[in-house]
Simulated assay, not measured.
Amino acid sequence: MSIGNSPPDDRPSVGRALAQARIAAGLSVDAVSTTTRVRVPILQAIEQDDFSRCGGDVYARGHIRTLARAVGIDPEPLVEQYAAEHSAETAPAPVAPLYEAERIRSEPRRPNWTAAMVAAIVAVVGFVGYTVVSGDGGDGDTSATSPTASPSSTGPSGRSPQANGVPKPPVPSGSAIAAAPPGKVTVKASAEGGTSWIQATDGNGKQLFQNSLKKGESVTWTDDRKIKLVVGNAGAVQLFVNGKDIGLAGSKGQVAHLTYTPGDPTQG
């Protein structure tokens, strides 16, 4: 596969668009490589519109989708642009002649009579053993096998039932923020409006999270001092700080840098 041709209009090439979005999101090549698991040489080649390192047209489209989501932009227009610019380079795979398929067709397998005989013997021995065991136990006291009464669904004290004397664990709360310990900062990010790339660090600068959050997914962090966020495509992320809904992290396509402390929900 050769290096892609120049786009026919004034819009940036696929690789240039990905590079601009990455820079706008404040991400380095190493950070995007770590998040997407696309090796740095391949990522750099794609940003220069060299797709020969991708290993084929299908892999190139997959890399474009992965990198676009990581930097917070819609991948489909870039995939369509790539297909339009490289349509001449993709040749249909030759169809094998019919006689080739007939020639390599495997012969039908012959029945394994030995295995069938062994299975029949095992079945007979098992049936005889079951008959003997059932006959010996037929005169026994049937009262010993009578089922015991099932425990009441509610005990005398009105508490929930127990299994084998062990209390059932309490049902967890539907919100991780509701159970947050006092004196700490708890931040929940929920991708309500689309995919967003998020990086979270604690008060000591330790990285807690760095990945793309797909639509419908959410993640929660807790720290004693503060939580710092870098949110790509901030208009797609709903934030909950110390149990309160503070709304969207920013506007669509914006890269937001936010910090929260135990005294918030106002931004620290």
Rank of each mutant, 00 (worst) to 15 (best):
S2A: 15
S2K: 04
D10W: 00
V14P: 07
V14L: 06
A21E: 04
A21G: 09
A24S: 07
A24N: 06
A25D: 00
L27P: 06
V40W: 02
F51S: 07
C54Q: 07
D57V: 14
D57E: 15
G62E: 12
L67Q: 08
L67M: 12
A68Y: 04
V71P: 01
Q81L: 09
P97L: 02
P97H: 03
L98V: 12
I104S: 08
S106Y: 08
P108E: 14
W113G: 13
I121G: 03
A123P: 01
G126E: 01
T131K: 06
V133T: 13
G140R: 03
T142R: 06
P151F: 05
T154H: 03
Q162D: 12
A163Q: 10
P167L: 10
P170H: 08
A179L: 10
V185Q: 03
A191Y: 00
A200F: 00
T201N: 00
D202N: 02
G203L: 05
K206N: 02
L229T: 02
G232A: 01
G232H: 01
G235C: 02
V237C: 01
F240W: 07
F240R: 07
D245M: 07
G247F: 10
A249C: 07
G253L: 11
A256L: 05
T261L: 10
D264I: 01
P265A: 03
T266Q: 01
T266S: 01
